[in-house]
C-alpha cells in the first residue's frame, strides 16, 4: 500500500498539527476527497512527495501556483490547497510561462503527464528548457493515456499493448530526461515512486533550482496499462521499476533520445545558467537605464 494511502487512513484520526512535521492533510483540499485516482496508481505518491518537498522548503501555499494540463496528472492540481490552474491539454508549461513572467514572486510548479508533456505539449517543453524561466516541471510518466482509456503514449515501451496498439507498440519511447537535457534544461532528474524519500529530495532540489527544472517521475498505471500488459499488481509494478534502475548513474544513458530499457535516476543535469525573467529584466534596465522605466 502506498504511503499516500497510509496517510489518508490516518486522516480519519484527529491528528495534532505540528509546526515541523509534514502532515499531508495541511496541504490538501480535503473536501474533494475521496480522490479520483485508481487503486495502485503511482500519481498519489508523486503528489505526496511534492507536498512534502514544499513543506520542507517552507513554501507558503499562498505563494504557490500549481499549473496542470489534461489527463490523470492534470487532475492532481485540484487537490492541492494552493493557487491551482487546471489548464488545457499539453499547454500547462505555456500557461505557467505567462504566469511566472507576470508574477515572478510566485513559486510556479507544473504537473504534467507523458502524453501532455511529450506529445501534444512537446514544443512547450523544449522551449521552456531553452528559455530557462524558473518553473519546476514534474512529469508523471505512466507510459499511457490513462484518462482516455489507455492509448499508446510517446513513452510506451516497445511491444506493449494499449487500446491503440492492439498488436504491440512498435514506436520507440522517448527518454524524457534526455529530451529535456538536449533542449537545455538546467536541472533534470528522475526517480521512481518506490523511493519516496529520494523522490521528495529530488523535488526539493528541483524546486530550489533557479531556472527550468524538469523531473520525471516513473509512475505506474496498474489499472489500465498494468492489467493490459499483465504487469502484475501495483507493488509488483513498482518493484520491477526499481529493479530497472541502473545501478549507478554513469552519465551515458541520459544522452540517448530513446529509452534503452533501464533508467538513470537521481539528479541527471545540474547547470548554472541565468534564469530568464531575471536576465530579461536586468537587461532591460541596463539598456534603458533604471530611471527611464516607468512602473
Amino acid at each position: 500500500m502506498s504511503k499516500l494511502a497510509l496517510n489518508l487512513k490516518s486522516l480519519q484520526k484527529a491528528g495534532e498539527k505540528s509546526d515541523h512535521k509534514f502532515e499531508i492533510r495541511d496541504y490538501l483540499r480535503l473536501d474533494l476527497f475521496p480522490h479520483f485516482l485508481c487503486p495502485g496508481c503511482g500519481h498519489g505518491i508523486a503528489l505526496r512527495a511534492l507536498l512534502w518537498a514544499i513543506h520542507d522548503l517552507d513554501i507558503e501555499l499562498d505563494q504557490l501556483a500549481v499549473v496542470s494540463g489534461i489527463g490523470c496528472s492534470g487532475r492532481l492540481s485540484a487537490y492541492i490547497d494552493a493557487n491551482t490552474f487546471h489548464t488545457t491539454h499539453g499547454r500547462p508549461i505555456a500557461f505557467a510561462t505567462g504566469l511566472k513572467l507576470a508574477r515572478p514572486d510566485l513559486h510556479v510548479v507544473v504537473i504534467t503527464g507523458d502524453g501532455d508533456c511529450l506529445a501534444i505539449g512537446g514544443n512547450h517543453l523544449i522551449h521552456a528548457a531553452r528559455r530557462n524561466l524558473d518553473i519546476t516541471c514534474i512529469m508523471l510518466n505512466n507510459e499511457v493515456y490513462g484518462m482516455t482509456g489507455g492509448q499508446v503514449s510517446p513513452t510506451t515501451s516497445l511491444d506493449r499493448y494499449t487500446t491503440t496498439t492492439p498488436l504491440g507498440n512498435q514506436e520507440p519511447g522517448f527518454d524524457a530526461c534526455a529530451l529535456a537535457k538536449g533542449a537545455g534544461a538546467t536541472f533534470v532528474g528522475r526517480e521512481v515512486t518506490l523511493q519516496t524519500t529520494a523522490l521528495k529530495n529530488l523535488m526539493q532540489e528541483g524546486l530550489s533550482h533557479d531556472g527550468f527544472s524538469f523531473i520525471e517521475v516513473i509512475s505506474d498505471c496498474t489499472e489500465i496499462y498494468g492489467r493490459k500488459n499483465e504487469l502484475g499488481s501495483s507493488p509488483e509494478m513498482v518493484l520491477s521499476q526499481k529493479r530497472s534502475i541502473l545501478p549507478k548513474f554513469d552519465g551515458t544513458a541520459v544522452d540517448k533520445p530513446f529509452r534503452a530499457g533501464n533508467w538513470d535516476t537521481g539528479v541527471l543535469v545540474r547547470e548554472d545558467r541565468p534564469e530568464y525573467y531575471k536576465a530579461y529584466r536586468k537587461h532591460c534596465h541596463k539598456v534603458l537605464g533604471t530611471a527611464a522605466v516607468k512602473k
Partner: peptide
C-alpha cells in the same frame, strides 16, 4: 512564444496572475 497556441496560453497564465 514558440507558437500561436502557447502565446494565447501565456496570455491567460499572465492574466490569471493578475496582469
Amino acid at each position: 512564444m514558440e507558437d500561436e497556441i502557447a502565446s494565447m496560453a501565456a496570455v491567460l497564465g499572465s492574466s490569471m496572475g493578475g496582469v
